[in-house]
């Protein structure tokens, strides 16, 4: 047996009906055996796809080896697989679907490699297009991602890891949300529900970074998705994530990794940072759509999850975290700026 885990050396092998062509470049240097490895694959008909291989050996690594970790990993795999099945059955067209799944076994290897095969995004992720696209395209793509998250939310699924690299482009114009690896469904909790921050902490909602966990499922989970959508939208229109813009406005000792107070105690300076960030953003947005777009960003990125989302005023038909209104406004703005 090679020193590397099997999940990290699938290149050139045939997994199910798929030939593994190449490991995803950004994973290539990772021989440590993390939870999963990703590959470009192709079937005999020449159809391209994307393979995510789960590395169960990770559970037996020096520091992490335990039956609990193995259990955690197998549950994660089945949870993501089942969630993707649900998305497929619900025809969520703006969510990147799994088109195949299974377990890869190799002679001489004790541990099998479970895998998921996803539809291939020929455009790659969002960052490939930003340098060459105009604001209308950016808003149109954000609209696609927003629709995907909205479809998930309708099924009571929170994505929890919305970031630029998880927005994939199909053709040149269709954006979809990908990677349900950190997602969780209401009433059918994933392992991630036990963890403070399920997704990538670099894009996490500010309240979770400051260790405030709302007891209300929607506020905590959908609220987090809304914040990350606000960050994504800001990145798409102004090249900067809202959270990093906010962090620029606070002192190093006020940041989550140093600040010892509660989220409530942090709120005055977070609100100040939030307001100053909105002022800065105004300068980066064309006047034609400035007010509308700033309002959307302000509502999605409000530091207080209880005040995030649709303003709860008398006569407002939208629930706090409903994305329906945001979908309509972004669609309108993308056409207006053409």
């Amino acid at each position: 047996m090679n020193g590397k885990p099997l999940a990290s050396r699938l290149e050139g092998k045939r997994v199910g009906q798929w030939n593994v062509i190449k490991r995803k470049p950004k994973d290539a240097a990772d021989s440590s055996g993390h939870f999963s490895s990703c590959y470009f694959v192709e079937n005999d008909k020449g159809e391209k796809a994307f393979l995510k291989a789960y590395n169960y050996l990770y559970a037996f690594g020096g520091k992490t080896g335990s039956a609990d970790t193995l259990k955690f990993m197998t549950e994660n795999f089945t949870y993501e697989r089942d969630l993707l099945t649900l998305c497929g059955n619900s025809k969520m067209r703006r969510v990147v679907m799994a088109i195949d799944s299974g377990e890869y076994v190799e002679a001489g290897e004790v541990i099998t490699v479970p895998y998921l095969i996803f539809e291939h995004a020929d455009g790659g992720n969002l960052t490939n297009f930003l340098p060459i696209s105009d604001l209308s395209w950016k808003l149109h793509s954000f609209h696609g991602a927003l629709l995907g998250v909205s479809q998930l939310h309708k099924a009571k699924v929170a994505h929890q890891d919305i970031k630029p690299s998880n927005i994939l482009i199909f053709g040149k114009t269709v954006a979809k949300i990908s990677d349900l690896g950190s997602a969780t469904q209401f009433g059918h909790a994933s392992n991630w529900e036990q963890i403070d921050i399920a997704g990538d902490q670099r894009y996490a909602p500010v309240e979770l970074l400051y260790k405030y966990f709302s007891p209300n499922w929607e506020t905590r989970r959908f609220g987090a998705d809304l914040f990350m959508l606000g960050g994504l939208l800001t990145y798409m229109v102004a090249d900067i994530n809202f959270l990093s813009l906010m962090y620029q406005k606070i002192e190093p000792y006020q940041r989550h990794n140093v600040f010892g107070g509660t989220f409530n105690e942090a709120m005055p300076f977070l609100m100040n940072a939030y307001h100053l960030s909105l002022v800065d953003l105004r300068k980066a947005i064309p006047e034609k759509i400035r007010d509308d777009l700033i309002q959307i960003i302000a509502e999605l990125s409000h530091p207080d999850p209880d005040k995030r989302g649709n303003p709860q005023r008398l006569g407002n038909p939208h629930s706090q975290f409903s994305l329906q209104r945001f979908v309509s406004v972004i669609d309108r703005l993308s056409k207006k700026i053409k």
Binding site: T127, P164, D200, Q201, Y235, N241
Partner: peptide, 25 residues
């Protein structure tokens, strides 16, 4: 992984995303 991807094929937008995210943590 993002750092590696940036080093492999740097673009201004990848850089902007990576820089902001690294700054946050």
């Amino acid at each position: 992984a993002d750092y590696l991807e940036f080093k492999d094929s740097p673009t201004p937008h990848k850089a902007a995303d990576l820089m902001g995210a690294a700054f946050v943590i």
